[in-house]
């Protein structure tokens, strides 16, 4: 093969790259360093500390990690626990399992049934946040909500979802909302499995459960890891629960992103808001590094 000739000279290439680099520098790199700076001050939106914020050292962080109030409702520790439960149940259990189930169930099938069900899942995923929140508010309503109506049909007692089980409500909401991504990713992964593998299993008399456990899951392990890390990262950063519950009742659904919003834009305490944002970014960085590490290990063993 002959040597590839350069299509775009370096100088033109850098010119092409310039505008995008400027945007990314201003809106991604700069905020990353800025937030670190603000988190060591008592900056607020209005008043004296808005124009002349003072350096307060680690005070904002110490306040977040103040162990005497850490686990109180509305405090950082309690919010972290809520976020952890929210991510685990809605993303890892809800989205990934439901997505895998959908992908597996319709694997090697075609036709309008598959198309319709998958389209419904995708619609749930792409329509705007606020619309989904409205729909779910009605869906979970105590008196007229569709879910309680269904409960009535099968003889169960009505549940006041948003007040009595707020965390379960946002978990169901987010699992429903995001399953399509996992479904699409796993469908694409299943599509890449050579059919001969499964035909061999069929001949050997493997049941559907054995096929899934012994052949399919090991083959799509990389995709599963990719999916879990991405949906964990997204769910950890989502603002969606705010639209359904506003963080309430009594802070019981206040995930870290909503707590950050309350500190920064309801209390106008930018110092604390930045410290919270900083901790969020460090957690994000942790997830991303785990992801990269896994990718590298797989790249090496291939």
């Amino acid at each position: 093969m002959h040597e590839r000739r350069t299509i775009l000279p370096l100088r033109t290439g850098l010119l092409f790259l310039g505008p995008a680099a400027l945007f990314i520098g201003a809106f991604i790199l700069l905020p990353f360093f800025w937030i670190a700076g603000v988190s060591f001050t008592n900056r607020s939106l209005t008043g004296a500390t808005a124009a002349n914020p003072q350096f307060v050292g680690l005070q904002n962080y110490l306040k977040l990690f103040d162990l005497s109030t850490f686990m109180n409702p509305g405090q950082f520790g309690s919010s972290l626990v809520i976020t952890g439960q929210f991510v685990f149940w809605s993303a890892i259990v809800g989205q990934a399992v439901l997505g895998l189930l959908l992908a597996w169930f319709f694997y090697r099938r075609t036709g309008w049934v598959k198309e319709s069900v998958q389209t419904l899942a995708i619609v749930a995923w792409i329509i705007p946040d606020v619309v989904v929140a409205f729909a779910w508010n009605a869906f979970l309503d105590y008196d007229g909500g569709t879910l309680n109506w269904l409960f009535g049909l099968v003889g169960l007692h009505k549940v006041d979802w948003l007040l009595a089980m707020p965390l379960l409500s946002i978990v169901l909401f987010n699992a429903w909302r995001g399953s399509a991504f996992s479904m699409l990713l796993f469908s694409s992964a299943l599509g890449s499995i050579p059919p001969s593998y499964l035909e061999t299993a069929d001949v050997a008399g493997a049941g559907p459960w054995q096929r899934l456990k012994d052949i399919i899951l090991p083959l799509i392990r990389t995709h599963i890891v990719t999916d879990l890390i991405l949906i964990t990262l997204w769910t950890f950063n989502t603002f969606g629960p705010f639209l359904l519950t506003g963080g309430g009742p009594a802070f019981r659904t206040e995930v870290v992103s909503v707590l950050t919003y309350r500190m920064a834009f309801k209390y106008f305490d930018f110092g604390t808001g930045s410290a919270l944002g900083m901790v969020m970014m460090l957690i994000n960085l942790g997830f991303a590094l785990v992801y990269l590490g896994l990718l590298r290990r797989q790249g090496g063993s291939r």
Binding site: T6, I7, L8, P9, L10, T12, G13, L14, F16, L17, I24, F27, I28, L29, L30, P31, F32, W34, I35, V38, L233, N237, T238, F239, S257, T260, Y261, A264, F265, F270, G273, S274, G277, M280, M281, N284, L285, A288, L292
Partner: peptide, 30 residues
């Protein structure tokens, strides 16, 4: 198409960084 050194690392680095600096985490500096 241009011979930019480390362009693969650059592409991945960008996506990585943008998933760390999310809208919710960076709302104050933004």
């Amino acid at each position: 198409r241009a011979p930019i050194r480390g362009r693969d690392a650059l592409s991945y680095g960008l996506v990585l960084f943008s998933s760390i600096v999310t809208g919710t985490a960076a709302m104050v500096p933004i």
